[in-house]
Design a protein around this nucleic acid. Structure first.
Lengths: 192, 192
DNA sequence: GTCTATAGCGCGATAGAC
DNA sequence: GTCTATCGCGCTATAGAC
């Protein structure tokens, strides 16, 4: 049973700050205050800010996609699987101070301020999610639970865009409650 | 015939910078370089940065909602009106360097870094848009062109969330082409 | 690995001449 | 209204002691 090391604590705090404020309002000083370490010491673990962001994105992407794959591998029906997938985004929005969005939603919005290696990571996260959605939608179409016309990829883009982008909008209006209803209506559109 | 004054030029450049990079990467120095004026002179027109942002949001909101009201007041069918409304967002994404999003989409993402008077303006923009959408959807339901179940307000939130939030996601994947297809599929969901 | 100290830069904002 | 000059701050990053 290993205790949480400093590196992990730094990543935890950085992630929370970005999810709330954005990458350009997350500073080594802010992390320093929360972790209880001097800001110069952070450079021991992550020499440059891009190193920290790359490590953070890799960790986040791994964790998130592992949860998604867990859902896909379950024995649930496609409809339940899709609901559970949407639930991942709902949980992010409603957890803690209720003002956190997906890490890659914030980074996507601030994409033009990121360096190339980070841009690629965000893009990969989006693509990986849409790939999983395509699989899920095809399964649901095969067993007759979803009514999807021709272009499954576009439907996947629609769903992901609504979840990932819509949570940024939902936060402005004040809530995960409204976000939940929107997702429910999306399900009605897709269900046969 | 009045020529474009400095104040307008400053707002134009500031808007472009925010739509591309976000509010926290828009500086008086950047504006200075593009407008061809020293950065100290900008304070003559907008003493504090929040003054500039407030004026910018008011101008943007007025212009955008005037276009929306123009669409609503036209003699088009509800379906055409909705397509034209979606077109406003498509145009933003495909104009210029193809990497601009709605001003209030960026500000919504960075909401937690804004001061209260600005937060209210973003919130009002969202509400005003959803109000117009509710009207449009009710019209379409009345004349039988839209098949919407019970909760028109939720459908409006869904559409606005997909347009406003989805354009942030679409920009990452590379395009207004994909965004256009997503909107087309949304129309298929809504049409009777 | 953590600390103190500091370099070097960009930022928003102000003062005062023209 | 625009300019030059400057202040004070926060930022990323580095150097060197412990």
């Amino acid at each position: 049973m290993k205790q949480t090391d400093t590196k992990t604590l730094i990543l935890d705090v950085a992630q929370e700050l970005i999810q709330r404020l954005g990458v350009n309002c997350m500073s080594y000083q802010d992390i320093s205050n929360s972790v209880g370490i001097r800001k110069a010491s952070i450079h021991t673990h992550f020499p440059r800010k891009d190193d920290l962001l790359a490590a953070l994105l890799d960790r986040y992407s791994d964790r998130f996609l592992r949860m998604v794959d867990g859902i896909l591998a379950s024995s649930d029906t496609p409809e339940v699987k899709l609901r559970r997938y949407c639930g991942l985004f709902e949980t992010t929005l409603s957890s803690g101070d209720r003002d956190k969005v997906c890490l890659c939603a914030m980074l996507g919005a601030e994409l033009k301020t990121l360096n190339h290696p980070l841009v690629e990571r965000v893009r990969c996260f989006y693509e990986a999610n849409e790939e999983r959605l395509v699989t899920l939608l095809n399964d649901g179409r095969a067993d007759g639970s979803f009514r999807i016309d021709e272009d499954v990829q576009t439907t996947a883009s629609l769903i992901f865009g609504l979840l990932e982008g819509g949570m940024l909008v939902a936060r402005v209006r004040g809530g995960s409650d409204q976000f939940h209803q929107v997702i429910e209506q999306l399900m009605q559109f897709i269900k046969v």
